[in-house]
């Protein structure tokens, strides 16, 4: 196999690569670890010796206790999860369909429709908040996860369609035509043939669209700030005051809020690998 040859030739080079990767990895993970391990330190120690690891004198779980007592965080996690997965599902399903329509069929309006769908990326959606709020109230969706799911789906469709279009363009026409000859309908081609081929891209889009939804503060504040529908990020804000921040509780809440995104990421990451192996099998 050809793989053995470059490996041998490049052992010095590959050492350099590993060192570079490790260095970059350190710069990416160190700040995050800083937050995580400071979240179990006393406030004095956080600011007194932010670099040092929690030890006998400085370890302090007060932040987590406050978070646990002060608020209904399990409920918030559930809400965030429902909203994130709900909007993710809708975004991916409708985004895939729209992207397929726009790339597979060259009709007169397709480029203009592509432009239309990207408009959503050009104006901060925050500006439409009042109209969205009125709409949500008229639909009777105030303080429901549905309201957030719909808004986030609309918010994420543009980027989803934009990205998936690029990847759908790379799917072989022969393959689709062969399926058509076999009598498969367009939906069958899309879900049976195209989607498996662009799984890495779909997983990537899933990760991209999930992050802003999970981390958003604004729309939960406006559309779903009741105790029953609060999200994690909104719940964490109660530790930020005008003059005082409860640093312990904030770090604890933020650390906890990283965990679910990490889990979701790892799940999608498997899809990436799955896409890779399937591509190889083909």
């Amino acid at each position: 196999m050809s793989a053995a040859k470059p490996r041998k030739r490049a052992s010095g080079w590959s050492l350099f690569i590993y060192v570079a990767l490790a260095a970059y990895a350190a710069s990416a993970i160190f700040p995050v670890l800083l937050v995580v391990y400071n979240s179990i330190k006393s406030k004095k120690a956080i600011f007194g010796q932010p670099l040092s690891l929690p030890g006998p004198g400085t370890i302090d779980f007060r932040g987590y206790e406050t978070v646990w007592e002060a608020a209904n965080f399990p409920r918030y996690f559930l809400n965030s999860g429902i909203v994130t997965l709900g909007s993710l599902g809708l975004t991916l399903l409708f985004g895939v369909m729209a992207a397929y329509a726009l790339t597979e069929f060259r009709f007169r309006m397709s480029r203009w429709l592509s432009l239309y769908i990207t408009i959503g990326l050009m104006v901060p959606i925050r500006l439409g908040t009042v109209a969205i709020l009125k709409l949500v109230m008229a639909l009777g969706l105030m303080n429901t996860p549905t309201a957030l799911i719909l808004v986030y789906t609309a918010m994420n469709l543009p980027v989803t369609v934009l990205i998936l279009s690029v990847f759908m363009n790379t799917v072989s026409q022969d393959l689709k035509n062969a399926a058509r000859v076999d009598g498969a309908g367009e939906y069958r081609i899309l879900f049976g043939h195209v989607i498996p081929l662009i799984r890495p891209a779909i997983a990537t889009v899933a990760v991209f669209t999930m992050i802003p939804v999970w981390n958003d503060l604004w729309f939960p504040l406006i559309l779903a700030n009741s105790e029953a529908t609060k999200t994690v990020i909104l719940g964490a804000q109660q530790f930020v005051g005008q003059y005082f921040k409860d640093w312990n509780a904030m770090l604890a809440a933020l650390t906890l809020s990283i965990v679910p995104t990490l889990i979701l990421y790892l799940l999608f990451s498997r899809q990436l690998i799955a896409g890779l192996t399937r591509g190889a099998v083909k």
Partner: peptide
Amino acid sequence: IIASLLAPALAIYTVFMIYPLVGT
């Protein structure tokens, strides 16, 4: 086929994104 593929995305997007922004 094209219409059915595009309809759900365009509907949600138009109602919750374009309409509020146009108003603003």
